[in-house]
Amino acid sequence: MSKFFYGIEDLFVNYLFAPYDFFRFMENWWSSNSVNWIFFVIGFVAMIYWMKELKLFNDRGEEDKSISSHSYL
Protein backbone atom coordinates (compact mmCIF):
# COMPACT_ATOMS: atom_id res chain seq x y z
CA MET A 1 0.00 0.00 0.00
CA SER A 2 2.91 2.36 0.64
CA LYS A 3 4.00 2.05 -3.01
CA PHE A 4 0.60 3.42 -4.01
CA PHE A 5 1.13 6.57 -1.95
CA TYR A 6 4.73 6.92 -3.14
CA GLY A 7 3.37 6.72 -6.68
CA ILE A 8 0.94 9.56 -5.97
CA GLU A 9 3.80 11.59 -4.49
CA ASP A 10 5.96 10.95 -7.54
CA LEU A 11 3.13 11.98 -9.89
CA PHE A 12 2.52 15.29 -8.18
CA VAL A 13 6.07 16.28 -7.21
CA ASN A 14 7.91 15.23 -10.34
CA TYR A 15 5.30 15.81 -13.03
CA LEU A 16 2.25 17.91 -12.18
CA PHE A 17 3.95 20.55 -10.00
CA ALA A 18 7.18 20.67 -12.03
CA PRO A 19 6.25 23.94 -13.85
CA TYR A 20 5.94 25.67 -10.47
CA ASP A 21 9.63 25.03 -9.77
CA PHE A 22 10.39 27.65 -12.41
CA PHE A 23 8.50 30.31 -10.44
CA ARG A 24 10.06 29.37 -7.11
CA PHE A 25 13.48 30.84 -7.86
CA MET A 26 12.44 34.20 -9.31
CA GLU A 27 13.49 37.35 -7.53
CA ASN A 28 10.36 39.36 -8.20
CA TRP A 29 7.29 38.68 -6.04
CA TRP A 30 4.88 39.70 -8.79
CA SER A 31 6.29 37.31 -11.35
CA SER A 32 6.51 34.49 -8.80
CA ASN A 33 2.82 34.80 -8.06
CA SER A 34 1.69 35.43 -11.62
CA VAL A 35 -0.24 32.15 -11.76
CA ASN A 36 -2.17 33.09 -8.62
CA TRP A 37 -2.97 36.51 -10.05
CA ILE A 38 -4.18 34.95 -13.31
CA PHE A 39 -6.53 32.66 -11.35
CA PHE A 40 -7.71 35.64 -9.28
CA VAL A 41 -8.53 37.67 -12.40
CA ILE A 42 -10.39 34.75 -14.00
CA GLY A 43 -12.40 34.22 -10.81
CA PHE A 44 -13.19 37.92 -10.50
CA VAL A 45 -14.40 38.14 -14.11
CA ALA A 46 -16.53 35.02 -13.59
CA MET A 47 -18.07 36.55 -10.44
CA ILE A 48 -18.91 39.80 -12.26
CA TYR A 49 -20.49 37.82 -15.12
CA TRP A 50 -22.53 35.73 -12.68
CA MET A 51 -23.79 38.80 -10.81
CA LYS A 52 -24.82 40.38 -14.12
CA GLU A 53 -26.73 37.24 -15.11
CA LEU A 54 -28.47 37.11 -11.73
CA LYS A 55 -29.55 40.73 -12.14
CA LEU A 56 -30.96 39.98 -15.61
CA PHE A 57 -33.02 37.07 -14.24
CA ASN A 58 -34.22 39.23 -11.37
CA ASP A 59 -35.19 42.12 -13.66
CA ARG A 60 -37.12 39.81 -16.01
CA GLY A 61 -39.01 38.26 -13.09
CA GLU A 62 -38.14 34.69 -14.09
CA GLU A 63 -37.23 33.59 -10.59
CA ASP A 64 -39.97 31.90 -8.58
CA LYS A 65 -39.98 33.76 -5.26
CA SER A 66 -43.13 32.24 -3.84
CA ILE A 67 -42.91 30.56 -0.45
CA SER A 68 -44.30 27.31 -1.81
CA SER A 69 -41.68 27.03 -4.54
CA HIS A 70 -39.90 24.33 -2.55
CA SER A 71 -41.66 21.62 -0.63
CA TYR A 72 -39.29 21.79 2.32
CA LEU A 73 -40.16 25.45 2.93
Rank of each mutant, 00 (worst) to 15 (best):
S71W: 09
R24W: 11
L16T: 07
A18D: 10
W29E: 10
D64R: 11
W30I: 09
L16M: 12
L54H: 10
S2Y: 05
E53A: 14
M1Y: 13
I8P: 02
L16N: 05
D10A: 13
F5A: 05
S2A: 06
F44S: 05
H70T: 03
N28W: 06
F57D: 12
M26T: 07
Y6Q: 06
I42E: 05
F44M: 02
L16I: 14
W50D: 12
D21Y: 15
I67N: 09
K55D: 09
W50K: 13
N36G: 15
S32R: 15
I8Y: 05
N33D: 09
I48T: 01
V13T: 11
W29I: 15
M47G: 15
M47C: 13
M51R: 14
V45G: 02
V35H: 14
M47T: 15
I8G: 00
K3Y: 13
Y20D: 08
F57Y: 10
G7P: 00
V41C: 13
F40D: 00
V13G: 07
D10S: 12
S68H: 08
W29V: 10
R60F: 11
S71M: 09
E53K: 10
D21C: 08
F23L: 11
R60P: 03
F12C: 03
W30M: 11
F40T: 03
L11R: 09
F4Y: 11
F39C: 13
A18S: 10
